[in-house]
């Protein structure tokens, strides 16, 4: 699965969790840009992504990922 596809899937999951059908994620999107992205929804998002792609994030990724672009890159790296 390529970068674009992963981004699409992540967007789909994020729309469900943040209850926003029109949500658009970009590489530079950070938590503060998205309404409702707090620690609880962040952990829910991480969990959904883990289930969807069958991967496991490390703590440094859960707590240290800076923006959506970095998140997608980590997923791509993990599934390839």
């Amino acid at each position: 699965m390529g970068y674009e596809e992963v981004m699409e899937k992540v967007t789909e999951i994020a729309r469900e969790i943040f209850e926003d059908e029109e949500l658009v994620l970009k590489d530079e999107t950070v938590a503060a840009d998205v309404d409702g992205w707090d620690s609880l929804t962040h952990l829910a998002l991480m969990n959904e992504i883990e289930n969807e792609f069958e991967i496991k994030f490390q703590m440094k990724e859960v707590q240290g990922i800076k923006n959506v672009g970095e998140l997608v890159r980590v997923i791509v790296e993990r599934i390839s």
Binding site: L40, L43, A44, N47, Q63
Partner: peptide, 24 residues
């Protein structure tokens, strides 16, 4: 407390496939 208590407990519960609410 979020970084060093809440998130580690939450993640451990997620690892055990508990419900989101239970983890919270």
């Amino acid at each position: 407390m979020k970084s060093y208590i809440y998130i580690p407990i939450f993640r451990a519960c997620q690892g055990k496939k508990m419900k989101q609410l239970t983890c919270y």
